[in-house]
Design a binder for these strands. Structure first.
Lengths: 341, 341
DNA sequence: CGGAATCATGAAACCGATTTCATGAAATCA
DNA sequence: TGATTTCATGAAATCGGTTTCATGATTCCG
């Protein structure tokens, strides 16, 4: 007489517990409607049979998939990995499973990903940056699914944001360099196509320089989104504008590339060149010199975005916006310029 | 007379096209069974109505979810991000959606994640490292779902691997240092609990040292899995074993922390201390000095793992194993030890 | 104590596709 | 030409749950 766990469906549990399938379903989903003793029996039988509800059947009838969609530029930026980590674990606590799609940095290309997430039945969606795709905006207007965007805080956007003001952050960085006495700037940026974060940062940088009458508003170079791009950008800057003494990098990733290129060229940081980053990556304090950078509360942002969506799911109201603070974190990569000439 | 796309289900498409629901279904899933003209009409109607099949209904009846499960230690190691990127995009090409779960580095804890993936209906599952959980092995034995593990190549494991030999890789690294003349070693490792990659690397390191009669087989330190841990480990090593001239890091991440700690202590790399990494992260060649490390074909591994699972899904046979090569990539962080005493 | 409200439960419909099985028409064959 | 496949299609069953609605048993209340 060997025991056999059986592995049947809900109907099997119902039979074994001597109740109807409806009652089994209620025992799991509306426990307060079921008599305590009956429910206990059902749960025991279900456990014994290792009953697992079929998510497809459940989703089909109840119209709830318990899936959350995420479309982000890349997983290869640790800042996004950090953000998504908190986001995902918060939703996991509530029984939701997350689907993560990567779309690249140009939000004009996110349509297919958003459509896929919605087709898959995502009950809420997280994006990064402002939506810049008319078709996605159409989707947004039609769907009941709550969306939140993060890592930026677009004004008057169709999609509410749990992010921060990129312009303000870059302004703090630029003003720090100006305050140190720098007059000749350049910026290492990412592509601005479909990327409001880059545009906001560039705009803020230019605004600061123009207001201060410093040089460099037009010295914004972009060679891509990876570390090597940062190196190439630095090379271009120093070749074309050798008087540059301060560089604003739109990602710590660029700063790593820039550091390497500086070493190759014998440029000393911060003595010859001040460099400032963005994101405060894990390695920022470990670089030589430790990188002055803008700390972005990625973990908190992920958590807040999850909470905003969770609340929206419950209340049926649009997600609550939230603008977080960034912190200019001073380390060793910025200093007053050497007195030239 | 305004146009209205309608957005109905398959039944609506059927009615509008003047055919039965069965035919509509076939037009999408078994197109060769449907008359060309009829199929064209169906497709046109479907497009006009923006028909989207309900994945829940489809999954319920067809028992196919078109979902792939992934359980990996963390997204915060870019090497895993790279691996998963290729994996995911390959499956996306075939119409599969990927669910990614993070489980930490201890594979004794992956049970819940694996169960969740299976409960969600994953048709194939990717893991990292050897399975070290009896419950997971039970699941493996019972399920028909193909599994593949990666980033290691466990012998006689229940789950086939598309990975590489961690011991061999570390052996190459250690022998390189031995060949340079080093005699006093230490290793910065991760936790070995539930982590065969770490154990394999440590074992290989010890084997090499013992065979060569060099010091350091017992100098394996671990302070965690992040960059700061690398720094703390280096501090411990130099405090306890100041004669150390060569350090094998089990991750480039540790090497970054070690570099920083070296600078703090005035230890020059490679003059005073040779450091070797593992993974060949994007920043490895950009560090100062550029990091000698073991290059792991993460992208290719992700792709191969996807192909292996795809083939298994088609053939119903177990996935094909594959052991990939790693490459010791020589850069500037290793050199002959200075002649002491 | 009688009628209304509440409660716990079950029967049956339902979610939206896929799949089986049946059928009539067309094609093939002897 | 009559019998036999083959082909394209539709009717209906089905996947495994959830939800609606009905019902009998209790409790509540005037």
């Amino acid at each position: 007489m060997q025991e056999r766990p059986k592995r049947g469906g809900l109907a099997a549990v119902a039979k074994a517990a001597g109740v109807s399938p409806a009652t089994v379903s209620r025992a799991f989903n509306l426990p307060e409607l079921v008599n305590d003793a009956v429910r206990a029996r059902i749960l025991a039988v279900a456990a014994e049979q290792q009953y697992r509800p079929d998510p497809a059947a459940r989703a089909l009838r109840s119209r709830r998939t318990h899936m959350i969609g995420v479309a982000l530029p890349t997983l290869d930026y640790s800042i996004f990995a950090r953000l998504i980590n908190r986001f995902q674990s918060r939703f996991a606590e509530e029984g939701y499973t997350t689907i993560i799609l990567t779309t690249g940095f140009d939000n004009r290309n996110i349509h297919d990903s958003v459509q896929l997430l919605l087709d898959r039945g995502a009950e809420a969606v997280l994006l990064v940056g402002a939506v810049e795709d008319a078709k996605v905006n159409e989707i947004l207007a039609e769907t009941q699914v709550p969306f939140v965007t993060t890592y930026s805080f677009p004004k008057g956007s169709a999609v509410p944001a749990v992010g921060f003001d990129n312009g303000e952050a870059t302004q703090a960085a630029t003003e720090h360099l100006l305050a140190l006495g720098h007059r000749h700037f350049a910026m290492i940026a990412g592509l601005t196509d479909g990327n409001d974060r880059q545009r906001d940062r560039i705009a803020a940088y230019r605004r600061c320089l123009e207001r201060a009458g410093a040089t460099g508003a037009d010295r914004v170079v972009c060679h891509g989104f990876d570390m090597a791009a940062g190196g190439r950008a630095l090379a271009e800057i120093m070749d074309h504008y050798p008087d540059t003494t301060a560089i604003v990098c739109n990602t710590d990733i660029f700063a790593v590339g820039a550091y390497a290129e500086c070493r190759k060229r014998g440029i000393r940081v911060p003595d010859d060149l001040s460099i400032i980053g963005f994101d405060d990556a894990e390695y920022a304090p470990l670089l030589d010199p430790p990188l002055t950078t803008i700390a972005v509360p990625a973990d908190e942002m992920g958590l807040c975005a999850a909470e905003a969506l969770l609340a929206a799911l419950k209340s049926k109201a649009p997600p609550q916006e939230r603008c977080m603070d960034t912190t200019l974190t001073l380390r060793g990569s910025t200093a007053a310029p050497r007195h030239k000439s």
